[in-house]
C-alpha cells in the first residue's frame, strides 16, 4: 500500500490543485479584461471572491441533504482525480494508473453537480443539470475515441505509459487534438458554458447555491478545469522531455516546472478563446460534438489500420 503513496506527491498535488485554480482564473480574468480593453481585477481576485463566499452563510431552498452535500462531493471528486496525476515524477496516491478510471473519477464532479441541481424544485437549475448531462453525453464518445487510438498506438491505457509510449503519427496527433477538444468542452469554457449560462437560465446548476456552498461548488469547478489541463500538460510534457535523460529529484523537478509552464501558458490562451466566442445553444453544442464523434470514428479506423 505504501508504495502507492508519495508524500511529496500529496504535498505537490494539494498545493497545486488547491492554490493554482483561483490564481489561473485570476490570470484568465486579466487576459479577458485586456482583450476587452479593460484594466481588469487584481490577479488574486478569485481568491478574494472565494474567501468572501466561504465567509457567507447559504440559503437552504430544500430540505434534501444531497443539495448541501453535493458541492463537497464535487470538490472531493476533483481532488481525488488530481491525486492520480503525476506532479513531476511524484503521483500522490496511485489508486489506479488507468486513464479510464481517471476520467470517471473526474466525471463524478459533474454527477455530484447534477444531483445537487436536481434536488431543488427549480426549473432553471434542472435545465442546467440536464444540459450538463447532455454535454457529458456528447463529449464522452469523443474521449472514448481518443482512448481507442491510444490503445492501438501506444498499446496501453495507463496514465503514465501513454505519453511515454505513444508514437508520433497521424492518428495520435488527432487523438491529442480530440483529447484537447473534449477537455475544453468538458471544462465548460465558453462556448460550452451551457450548463451555467448565466443570461439564459440564471446560472443554471448554480442558481440555488449561495454563500459558502456556492464557493465550494465554484471551487470544485475551477479545480476540475485545472485537473483536465494538468492531464493535457502531462501528456505534452513527457513526450517533449522524452529525449532528455531525467533522473532523480532534479529530473522530477524539471518535469514539474515544464508542466507548470505549459499550464500557465495554456490558460491565457483559453481565456482569449473564451473572450472571443459566444455561447452555443445546447442543441448546437450537442450537434457539434456528435459531428466530431462521427468524423473521428474514421480516425479510429485509421489508427486500427496502423497509421
Amino acid at each position: 500500500m505504501m508504495e502507492r503513496i508519495s508524500i511529496v506527491g500529496i504535498v505537490a498535488g494539494v498545493v497545486i490543485t488547491a492554490l493554482l485554480p483561483p490564481f489561473l482564473d485570476g490570470i484568465a480574468r486579466r487576459v479577458k479584461a485586456r482583450v476587452q480593453y479593460r484594466v481588469g481585477p487584481p490577479i488574486m481576485q478569485t481568491f478574494y471572491d472565494l474567501q468572501k463566499l466561504f465567509g457567507l452563510p447559504s440559503l437552504r431552498p430544500t430540505e434534501n441533504k444531497w443539495f448541501r452535500v453535493a458541492p463537497y462531493l464535487a470538490l472531493a471528486s476533483a481532488f481525488s482525480a488530481a491525486f492520480l496525476l503525476p506532479y513531476g515524477k511524484w503521483v500522490p496516491v496511485k489508486f489506479s494508473g488507468d486513464i479510464v478510471v481517471f476520467l470517471y473519477v473526474l466525471a463524478m464532479v459533474s454527477v455530484a453537480i447534477i444531483i445537487g441541481a436536481f434536488s431543488t424544485q427549480n426549473a432553471h437549475s434542472n435545465i442546467g443539470g440536464h444540459r450538463e448531462m447532455m454535454m457529458l453525453l456528447s463529449v464522452e464518445p469523443i474521449l472514448g475515441i481518443a482512448l481507442g487510438i491510444f490503445a492501438f498506438k501506444a498499446g496501453t491505457l495507463s496514465l503514465s505509459e501513454i505519453p511515454l509510449k505513444v508514437p508520433a503519427s497521424f492518428s495520435t496527433v488527432l487523438a491529442y487534438l480530440l483529447l484537447i477538444y473534449a477537455a475544453y468542452a468538458e471544462s465548460g469554457f465558453v462556448p460550452f458554458d451551457v450548463a451555467e449560462a448565466e443570461t439564459e437560465i440564471a446560472g443554471g446548476v448554480l442558481v440555488e447555491y449561495s454563500g459558502r456552498l456556492l464557493g465550494v461548488l465554484e471551487y470544485a469547478m475551477l479545480a476540475k478545469r485545472l485537473v483536465l489541463l494538468w492531464l493535457l500538460s502531462t501528456f505534452l510534457t513527457i513526450p517533449i522531455l522524452r529525449g532528455i535523460q531525467l533522473t532523480g529529484i532534479a529530473g522530477g523537478l524539471v518535469v514539474l516546472v515544464v508542466q507548470l509552464i505549459l499550464v500557465l501558458v495554456a490558460y491565457p490562451i483559453i481565456a482569449a478563446l473564451e473572450a472571443t466566442n459566444a455561447r452555443y445553444r445546447i442543441d448546437q453544442a450537442v450537434a457539434l460534438n456528435t459531428r466530431i464523434f462521427l468524423l473521428s470514428l474514421v480516425v479510429l479506423a485509421v489508427a486500427a489500420v496502423g497509421w
Binding site: P61, Q121, N122
Partner: peptide, 25 residues
C-alpha cells in the same frame, strides 16, 4: 482518498445553511 478529502473539506468549511428559502422563482 475520496473520503479523507470529503471529510476534510466538510470540517474545514462546514456548510452554513440555517436559513431556508423558497427556490428562486
Amino acid at each position: 482518498v475520496f473520503g479523507v478529502i470529503f471529510v476534510a473539506f466538510l470540517l474545514l468549511l462546514p456548510p452554513k445553511a440555517k436559513e431556508t428559502a423558497k427556490p428562486w422563482d
